[in-house]
């Protein structure tokens, strides 16, 4: 957000320092610091619990720093084949889902940005209408079943392949590109697909990065599709769904079915509390590590349509 910097620049010139103003500044900073604590604390608490000896955590009093540092919880979690498998599937759906979505979105966006394309209106309306019409959970479920996608990895990829929001985002970006560039490519005899691949896509990298990030976060954080379609197939489970099962079990108090609350767990000195905290960290760390560096792409995506409104 380059313009936010210029927006605050003139304020620095202001040298108003009435007492009221100073009190406001201090109160503002204190309040925002408290807000940051509130945003971070619950997460840091889980991090501390995951890095603390499980038996020691039961005594309570762990806030943001582990009392008896230990990596046992992580070792235990990753020894579990199910967690390992789920991690692989989570990454696989993130990568495959993002690549497929970005390419598909770019291709359709390109075709509906060609002003003379005969099907342009038809394709655009067909896509935009789906933003209004939502068949609902059960019709979707019956449809996926009839398409034989239950119990398959592809149920993570196909249903959400192209989103209307990202499609419009890419199309408006292509619309802004100078027409002359594409014109010259066509005069050189390049076909539409070649023009897209060699000229348009490289120019669209910023917006494609933005939608890739949105898709990646969506893919990583999804669990309902696992729950609805693949809950009987452990091989296709994801980290989010494994964590959801743990949460469900720990809120249901006693659980003979939980993979973690059996006697074996007690023998290896882990507890449901520590496993839960560890899985929480494992399931969120990739996104938490990534977003601060790629923030500007996300922000761009959020503001492109927003401010024009």
């Amino acid at each position: 957000m380059a313009n936010s910097a210029s927006g605050t620049a003139p304020k620095k010139l202001r040298r108003d320092s009435s007492i009221g103003d100073r009190i406001f500044d201090i109160a503002n900073i204190v309040f925002l610091c408290l807000l940051m604590v509130a945003s971070l604390y619950p997460f840091l608490n889980q991090l501390a619990l995951s890095l603390n000896q499980a038996m020691d955590s039961i005594k309570g009093g762990i806030y943001i720093w582990p009392r008896h540092f230990s990596l046992e919880n992580y070792k235990y979690v990753f020894k579990d084949n199910q967690v390992y498998q789920a991690t692989m599937i989570s990454f696989l759906r993130l990568i495959v889902g993002t690549v497929f979505s970005v390419f598909s979105t770019a291709i359709v966006a390109y075709t509906i940005s060609r002003p003379d394309f005969v099907l342009r209106k038809f394709v655009t309306i067909a896509f935009v209408l789906t933003a209004y019409i939502n068949p609902g959970i059960i019709p979707d479920f019956l449809n996926i079943r009839d398409l034989h996608l239950v119990n398959s990895f592809w149920v993570y990829i196909w249903p959400g392949l192209i989103g209307v929001f990202t499609l419009i985002l890419v199309r408006s970006f292509i619309d802004e590109l100078p027409e002359s560039i594409m014109e010259s490519a066509r005069i050189d005899g390049a076909g539409e697909f070649k023009t897209l691949m060699s000229i348009v896509l490289p120019l669209c990298l910023p917006v494609l990065a933005t939608i890739a990030l949105f898709t990646a976060v969506f893919q990583w954080n999804s669990w309902i599709d696992v729950f609805l379609y693949n809950s009987s197939n452990e091989k296709l489970s994801t980290l989010q769904y494994e964590l959801q099962k743990i949460l469900q079990n720990s809120s249901a108090a006693s659980s003979a079915t939980s993979a973690f609350s059996n006697s074996q767990a007690a023998a290896t000195m882990v507890t449901p509390l520590s496993i839960r905290a560890t899985m929480t960290i494992v399931a969120s760390v990739p996104m938490i590590m990534m977003y601060p560096f790629l923030q500007k792409y996300f922000v761009k995506g959020m503001t492109v349509g927003g401010v024009k409104g």
């Binding site: 598909s104 291709i107 359709v108 390109y110 075709t111 509906i112 060609r114 003379d116 394309f117 005969v118 099907l119 038809f122 394709v123 067909a126 896509f127 789906t130 019409i133 068949p135 609902g136 059960i138 019709p139 979707d140 019956l142 449809n143 398409l147 196909w158 249903p159 392949l161 192209i162 076909g191 539409e192 697909f193 897209l196």
Partner: peptide, 27 residues
């Protein structure tokens, strides 16, 4: 004339139909 553009968009319209319009039949 625009068969390339048609080829690029129609498969995705079919996808759209399969995953976003067909479920409406469930109503």
């Amino acid at each position: 004339q625009q068969r390339m553009l048609v080829l690029m968009s129609v498969p995705f319209v079919i996808w759209l139909f399969l995953f976003k319009y067909m479920p409406l039949w469930g109503w």
